[in-house]
Computed example of a mutant assay.
Amino acid sequence: MRAQIIEAFGETDVFRLTSRPEPLPGPGEVVVALAATSINPVDYKLRRYGPSIAPALPAILGCDVAGTVVAVGAGVADFKAGDEVYGCAGGVAGVSGGSYAEFIAADARLLAHKPSSLTMREAAALPLVTITAWEALDRAGVGAGTSVVIHGGAGGVGHIAIQLAKARGATVFATVSSDEKAAIAERLGADHVINYRVEGVADYVARLTGGRGFDVVFDATGGDDIATSFAAARLNGHVVTIVSQYDADLSPMHTKGLSLHVVFMLIPMLHDIGREAHGRLLRRAAALAETGKLRPLIDPETFALEDLPRAHQKAEAGRALGKIVVTIATG
């Protein structure tokens, strides 16, 4: 099979398109012929920095999977050859392969049947960001009647969080950085959209909540400005973040009685704990997709497996509008 491998960590020139043996399924695994994958920040961070949660070198990176089952290992009952599947199943320590290849041997617990209403490319854009957003909303108890503001509403995790929160009956507010992204957030279902470059947090909290603050603040930007989230939350509210690897003043949490939740969705993959929860979650997400309540935003530029270095460059530069999808097979 063709695969993009890395033998060292660094810039995109570490990728090497080569031929590797096709994997065989181990117990509890299925081999998937990949149709597409997508780029997530963890992918280029692992490529650049390694090695704490990176697979051993030489490695095939890539987390998101969409394709067709071609072989089934012992003990697998939920899938058979010919099934179309999707999931977040590769590219980190603790799993056996990555999605930057034509085939992957994946833990069946991490997969679900692909929504029939989505193309392979659309399905490939969903797994990591959907699991992340779903876990964040669960942690904060988002449901009917909850007011939730999503920072980074047009980003990879944020644009999914808007749709999931709406499906739960929440009132959804989203912050964005441009009019173009505001239109995207509105199209995805946000009830109120805030351009944070125009209106500061104190002003939009006063305008939209009468100064009370939001029940839940979800920082889906991957940035390091948690103070804005604390400022936006109500007394005894919830703040959720997907990145916390920086120094921050937590004293506003005390004065407001806030709960802080940090989401690191890779834990089941890295430590083989609760992997079946990811499969269950993706089955529920597929049901939402089938009813038109969940669709990914995909950057219009197309990439093939041989274009992977260029796809990483675009993602790392922050130039994408939506998820960057890489087509592995067109058949």
Score class of each variant (00 low, 15 high):
D13Y: 04
V72K: 02
V176I: 15
L137S: 06
V216H: 05
R212F: 05
Y49W: 11
D43L: 09
R2K: 15
D215I: 04
E301W: 08
P252L: 03
L188E: 05
P27E: 15
E290I: 08
T130V: 14
A170L: 09
F214E: 06
Y49A: 12
V262P: 01
D225T: 13
G152R: 08
I242E: 03
H312W: 03
D299M: 14
A183V: 14
L294D: 09
A220I: 06
S259N: 04
S52W: 06
G75I: 10
A206G: 02
R16K: 15
E290P: 09
L294M: 09
P25Y: 07
L266N: 07
A161G: 04
M120P: 06
Q163E: 10
V42K: 09
R16Q: 13
G26W: 02
L270S: 11
G75M: 10
V243P: 01
V142E: 00
P252T: 08
L294T: 08
S116L: 10
P21E: 14
G143M: 01
V42M: 12
L308G: 11
E7F: 01
S244N: 12
L34T: 05
T291A: 09
G98C: 07
E135G: 01
I273E: 15
A287L: 12
A287R: 07
Y204P: 05
T119H: 12
E122N: 07
T12A: 09
A89L: 07
N236Q: 02
R168N: 03
I5G: 01
K293I: 02
H113R: 14
G279R: 06
Y246N: 11
G237M: 00
I160V: 15
G169N: 00
G189V: 03
K181R: 15
G67R: 05
D43G: 12
A35F: 11
G153R: 04
I184S: 07
A304I: 02
A101M: 09
